[in-house]
């Protein structure tokens, strides 16, 4: 019989709604590892499936744009990486909040593993955006509000990674990085609304939560597959890195018992 991944309802230590029960239950690194091992293959294979379908559909079977021609196909990698860059940073800030307020044992490790992957997504967003900009705008880079705010996001990611490794006592590094992650959240609405607030070279969003998409469904579907695939891939890579980080912490604790480092030490 397989065990459910949901926490037991009857446990007296677990109070509150499903969300908080889930986070408290999986605060235990052993339980999280067990859950991660079971979830990893589903996450990985579904990410491969969606990404493959999205990219092949976008590259070979979606129609060219009436204005941009085939260059619009860069959208199928640029938009998912742009969404990952922002949502990855939101996850980083959430980890910071969980670490500073609730001292969640895995929040610091998760933030340390999300940071480099989010920085790569942001770098990809900037590079693919530049490669899209050159044939369309005639230049790789302009100091446009959208581009500049995403560049700031990239620097925030780099700052977060650097702060984690900047202190001799790693807990101080985690704490400083968590504060930076929370302060940097201000950049996310600036990125989102920069195209509305300022007159930018970057086009306004084609997909929003409040309005109908302004792109054809023949382009929207491959883009949706690509976005889901990239999101699942991001989760799969972060999960694998986090599982490795938990095991590495166990190894350090076994090798150097005198320097035993609990997951939420302060």
């Amino acid at each position: 019989m397989t065990r459910s991944l949901l926490p037991p309802r009857s446990s007296s230590t677990l109070q509150g709604n499903v969300f908080s029960r889930f986070f408290h239950y999986y605060a235990n690194p052993g339980r999280f590892l067990h859950m991660g091992t079971r979830v990893q293959p589903y996450l990985t294979y579904s990410a491969l499936f969606f990404t493959f379908i999205g990219l092949v559909w976008g590259l070979f079977f979606s129609p060219p744009d009436w204005q941009q021609g085939d260059t619009v196909r860069i959208m199928y990698v640029h938009v998912p990486t742009a969404i990952l860059a922002s949502s990855g940073y939101a996850a980083l800030a959430l980890c910071g909040l969980f670490s500073l307020v609730w001292q969640h044992p895995l929040a610091n490790l998760a933030a340390a593993e999300i940071g480099p992957v989010g920085a790569c997504a942001t770098a990809l967003c900037l590079v693919t955006g530049s490669l899209w900009g050159k044939p369309m705008w005639g230049t790789y880079w302009v100091w446009d509000a959208r581009l500049t705010s995403v560049l700031i996001l990239f620097f925030l990611y780099l700052g977060h990674i650097s702060l984690i490794h900047a202190f001799e006592d790693q807990q101080h590094g985690y704490q400083a990085a968590a504060i930076l992650a929370l302060a940097g959240v201000i950049d996310l609405p600036i990125i989102k609304f920069s195209v509305d607030w300022w007159n930018t070279l970057h086009q306004p969003d084609s997909i929003t939560l409040t309005k109908a998409p302004t792109i054809s469904s023949s382009m929207l579907w491959p883009l949706a597959f690509s976005m889901v695939g990239f999101f699942l891939g991001f989760c799969a890579i972060v999960l694998a890195r986090l599982r490795a980080a938990i095991l590495e912490r166990r190894i350090r604790n076994l090798l150097f018992p005198s320097h035993h480092q609990p997951f939420n030490s302060r």
Binding site: D70, T71, L124, V127, T128, L131, P135
Partner: peptide, 15 residues
């Protein structure tokens, strides 16, 4: 525009 498309997909897949 093919080199720009190939470069975008290539860099993304390699990363």
């Amino acid at each position: 525009h093919l080199p720009f498309i190939v470069a975008s997909y290539g860099i993304t897949l390699i990363t």
